[in-house]
């Protein structure tokens, strides 16, 4: 997957987790938490959706890397490039 495709996938997950939120103009450099109200349960759901949809296992110590869209895509790129 290209970084653009990965970004679309993450957007799709966010849309699924927070269907009432408008995430079309999300700022990739800012943290998710500053833009949409995600609590720790929601955050875990991003991880679980990635596992469910793409079989990507993310160890707990890497969670901080999923803070913003840019850092998430950068983190996922090597894991998802062959998908």
């Amino acid at each position: 997957m290209t970084p653009d495709k990965i970004r679309d996938e993450v957007l799709d997950i966010l849309r699924d987790i927070a269907p009432d939120d408008d995430i079309t103009d999300i700022d990739d450099e800012k943290s998710f938490r500053d833009q949409i109200e995600l609590d720790s349960m929601d955050f875990l759901d991003i991880v679980m959706e990635l596992r469910k949809r793409h079989r990507v296992q993310i160890p707990e110590e890497d969670y901080p890397q999923l803070a913003s869209m840019a850092s998430t895509v950068a983190y996922l790129e090597p894991l998802m490039k062959d998908m």
């Binding site: 699924d16 987790i17 927070a18 269907p19 009432d20 939120d21 609590d39 349960m41 929601d42 759901d45």
Partner: peptide, 17 residues
């Protein structure tokens, strides 16, 4: 639109609008 309380949280967890 109020996402902070238990109602908002469970709607998200169960993927309800």
């Amino acid at each position: 639109g109020d996402r902070r309380g238990p109602l908002g949280r469970l709607l998200r967890q169960l993927r309800f609008k």
